[in-house]
Write a protein that binds this DNA or RNA. Structure first.
Length: 636
DNA sequence: ACGCGACTAAACACTC
DNA sequence: GGAGTGTTTAGTCGCG
């Protein structure tokens, strides 16, 4: 199922670069593997950990990390087969975060060791000034340092390319200051200064490109690689040209079109920007001009940082809550490992730099065990689906449609998110169109205004315009609920609510399948949406009216079965007792089928959001009421 | 297996 | 003629 979803995702998403690219990047060890392989030929004579060994270490971490995150032992190959690209990407990003830390610990240790050795050599060097052997040894040390730095740089490149570490927008040459501090640029700088200060002899080396001082800062900045030519261009006197490959590899990655996290499919992916750029070069120009380091860009960055931080905090909270819920439901407790652990690793790398695309990808596995008691049949896939709650990019329409939250409430809560994140909204076109129309005072919109609403509200619809616009038109024409009215200005579209309610008789019930999908489907659209809403509950405290968080988000998060409020909530209001209020236990053990009724009976028999009523004794407002309560002004 | 809804793509017609 | 709009058909997919 997940495999299918993956393929479907790719198929149905011409822009589905997130999953695809990451998937293709991963198997070879993050792309850096190629470079590292040639580094093996270097055969560093120092006997220290060679770049190859480092790479080997790095590669070895992958399965380990997978095992760490997976409740069951799954090989990476299996993971690849089962996981969809976005899921894989999320998983791998988690791994990368872990690897990053581990690697950097290695780097640090190595550098400390080398530093020690260098000091020792300096002592000896004072007694044997300017001896050839010493020079060679120093060279070797420096080479090794450089190798490590280049490896680190390469690794960072990989991470950056995969979106784990993103470049501060508009600052193409800014070092990765926000990386985990195991090796911070200043440390390296200091180390290099000490090394170079102790060895004024190395002028000649510097002239050959071994300008350590400048190289230092470069080494921690992946972007700097393209700015200042690294030493690898110059074979070292002792014949070791080991740095050639990694370096070239790194720069080749840099030059790969679309390798920039903010550049994809010929468009600038800066939040709110969709400028077309033919190639990376043009994009970089655009980036430096349009998104330079100015107040606006920094403000946007700050917002993004806050979003990420809030999400991470919220994830921790929600994880705890889930644990408690599951414990309460007598479900198999989730893995002893704290949910926040992997996340923290991720956050350490993405906290302040994550783009919207790197939303909590590394989400842990709340649903893993939750699935088992409810749908034992789904144990296999449930493991997988647990890995990612937030898949970015195209999502499965059906899922998202089925389980998505009430569009108005979720939009109200997450409009900032959808505005900026390139995430497909978990609503059908029809519901989106309806929402757009209903948001207007006179409840009518021209086609172009509908377009504008889409692009204004969703970053996702700022690209692939031909596709979704066609879909919008198609939906307008296809569905009877959309009525075209000739106006003075031209044609406007309105919504026939009655038709809209009739459009889709309630299908979703409290069936086990629903629960199964609600939970095990976490990895994708539906839960994606639900979880987004859940996260949004407190992820955007600054962006949403606090007064509406508790009520609307509760319903928004948990509503199932309909893609919008109107069809789901109304009957609750009209007849609060129409649907049984179930405790979670009841729900899981005795799934209740809400009678499927034709649309005519929508007053009473519409399925209620079972989970919502079960877990939140909130008074769910009427659709209209809800919409009117929502800060609609925020939406536009 | 089948039907249905949703989505995508495409062709075509019409209007400005 | 081209762009925008509107309609329709076909194919695919996920789901019940």
């Amino acid at each position: 199922m997940m495999v299918e979803s993956a393929s479907e995702t790719i198929r149905s998403a011409p822009s589905g670069q997130n999953g695809v690219s990451s998937l293709s990047n991963q198997p070879d060890g993050g792309g850096g593997g190629g470079g590292g392989r040639e580094g093996a030929a270097s055969g560093d004579s120092n006997g220290e950990l060679s770049p190859v060994e480092l790479l080997h270490f790095q590669q070895q971490q992958v399965p380990v990390s997978v095992a760490m995150m997976s409740p069951q032992m799954i090989t990476p190959q299996q993971m690849q087969q089962i996981l969809s690209p976005p899921q894989l990407q999320a998983l791998l990003q988690q791994q990368q975060a872990i690897m990053l830390q581990q690697l950097q610990e290695y780097y640090k240790k190595q550098q400390e060791q080398l530093h020690l050795q260098l000091l020792t050599q300096q002592q000896a060097g004072k007694q044997q000034p300017k001896e050839q052997p010493l020079g060679n040894k120093q060279l070797a040390f420096q080479q090794q340092l450089l190798q490590m730095q280049q490896l680190q740089q390469q690794h960072l490149l990989n991470l950056q390319r995969q979106g784990l570490v993103s470049l501060p927008p508009g600052q193409g040459t800014v070092p990765l200051q926000t990386l985990p501090q195991a090796v911070c640029p200043s440390d390296l700088q200091q180390l290099w200064k000490e090394v170079t200060a102790a060895q004024p002899v190395e002028d000649s080396i510097k002239q050959e490109g071994l300008d350590l001082t400048t190289n230092t800062s470069n080494s921690t900045s992946f972007s700097a690689a393209k700015v200042s030519p690294p030493i690898s261009h110059h074979p070292l006197p002792n014949g070791q040209s080991t740095m050639h490959t990694p370096r070239r590899d790194s720069s080749s990655h840099e030059e790969t079109p679309g390798s920039h996290p903010l550049y994809g499919h010929g468009e600038c992916k800066w939040p709110g920007c969709e400028t077309l750029c033919e190639d990376l070069g043009q994009f970089v120009k655009h980036l430096n001009t349009e998104h330079a380091l100015d107040d606006r860009s920094t403000a946007q960055c700050r917002v993004q940082m806050q979003v990420v931080q809030q999400l991470e905090i919220q994830l921790a909270k929600e994880s705890e809550r889930l644990q408690a819920m599951m414990a309460h439901l007598h479900m198999r407790p989730s893995e002893p490992k704290p949910f926040s652990q992997p996340l923290n690793l991720v956050s350490s790398a993405t906290l302040s730099k994550s783009t919207s695309d790197t939303f909590p990808d590394g989400l842990p596995h709340p649903p893993t065990s939750a699935t088992a008691p409810i749908t034992p049949l789904r144990q296999g896939p449930s493991v997988i689906s647990s890995s990612t709650l937030h898949s970015v990019g195209p999502i499965r329409r059906r899922n998202s449609e089925k389980f998505c939250t009430p569009i108005s409430s979720e939009l109200a809560q997450n409009h900032e998110f959808y505005k900026n994140a390139d995430v497909r909204p978990p609503f059908t076109y029809a519901s989106l169109i309806r929402q757009a129309i209903l948001e207007t005072p006179d409840r009518q919109l021209t086609l172009n205004e509908i377009y504008n609403w889409f692009t204004r509200m969703f970053a996702y619809f700022r690209r692939n315009t031909a596709t979704w616009k066609n879909a919008v038109r198609h939906n307008l024409s296809l569905h009877k609920c959309f009525v075209r009215v000739e106006n003075v200005k031209g044609a406007v579209w309105t919504v026939d609510e009655h038709e809209y309610q009739k459009r889709r008789p309630p299908k979703m019930t409290g069936s086990p399948t629903l629960v199964k999908n609600m939970i095990s489907g976490l990895g994708y659209g539906a839960l994606n949406a639900s979880y987004q809403a859940a996260l949004a509950e407190s992820s955007f405290p600054l962006l949403n009216s606090p007064t509406m968080i508790n009520t609307s988000s509760a319903s928004g998060m948990l509503h199932v079965g309909h893609d919008d409020v109107s069809s789901t909530v109304e009957q609750v209001n009209s007849n609060g007792s129409s649907s049984p209020r179930l405790s979670p236990q009841q729900y899981s053990s005795h799934p209740v089928h809400v009678k499927e009724e034709p649309a005519e009976a929508e007053d009473d028999s519409r399925p209620v959001s079972l989970l919502a009523t079960a877990t939140q004794n909130v008074t769910i407002p009427d659709d209209r009421d809800l919409e009117e309560e929502l800060p609609v002004e925020d939406l536009s």
